[in-house]
Amino acid sequence: MMERMPETKEKILSITDLWVRQSGHVVLESINLELFAGDFLGIIGPNGGGKSTLLKAILGLINPDRGEIAIFGLPPAKALSRIGYVPQKTVFDRSFPVKAQDVVLMGRYSRVGLLHRYGKEDRDLALEALKAVGMEDRAEREIGELSGGEQQRVFVARSLVSDPDLLLLDEPTAGIDSAQQTEFYELLSHLNCHLGKAIIMVSHDLTAVSTYVSKIACLNQRLYYHGSPELSNEDIEKAYGCPVEMIAHGTPHRVLREHD
């Protein structure tokens, strides 16, 4: 089912026959997925299709009913410091008294650990991460004063600051205006190409996903996946349960194959 990648690429994530049931319902059914260094996987699918659940399972927040998830060959709980996570629309009090750089510093927790204090190195890395997302001049600003797009960049910096190999993003552009969305996707592209971060991005924005990702999968309880940036019409129809019309940009990737 999956396209084989060249042997030289390190395998980052492998999911075998993953089943997750929640309050009696099957949410994820027999999911198989492999991700290699440098991959940028977009996962699309309808609401309630299990996208966030899959990410939570990868983070070890949900125990699967069956199947296995391995990150660098380790169970999720032991690989947390190698994963950067950008949650779906971070809900926080907009007047919460923290500066952008303090928020980024929180991402160092997985490296620093319980009871240890952040040191100068951690602070320097936080500023570096802010630089990587183009937010260094916002370091001293209160997080609530920033725009939606800027906040999301800060949250990406927070996920980058532990120097992860894999980034998980859950609907990262929800609630951001379209100009900032484009910039945001460019940023992800940059992190993927130049910093070599493998990325899994969950989204329902078909068009944007197809433009920036290198692989695409469709999730609706089952995962429809061919390891390429293109999805067949049948895949999408199976996943969404009805025909979906898509308008995709011609380059660099297409969602739909040329019709026969």
């Binding site: 919460f96 303090d102 929180m106 927790y109 952040y118 927070r158």
Partner: peptide
């Protein structure tokens, strides 16, 4: 004093805190 960093994480964004391994 001991748990200042952890309490800040918990207060700001518990969902994220849990995802990065905070108890």
């Amino acid at each position: 004093f001991l748990f200042y960093k952890e309490l800040l994480l918990l207060s700001f964004d518990p969902q994220y805190a849990q995802a990065i391994g905070l108890p």
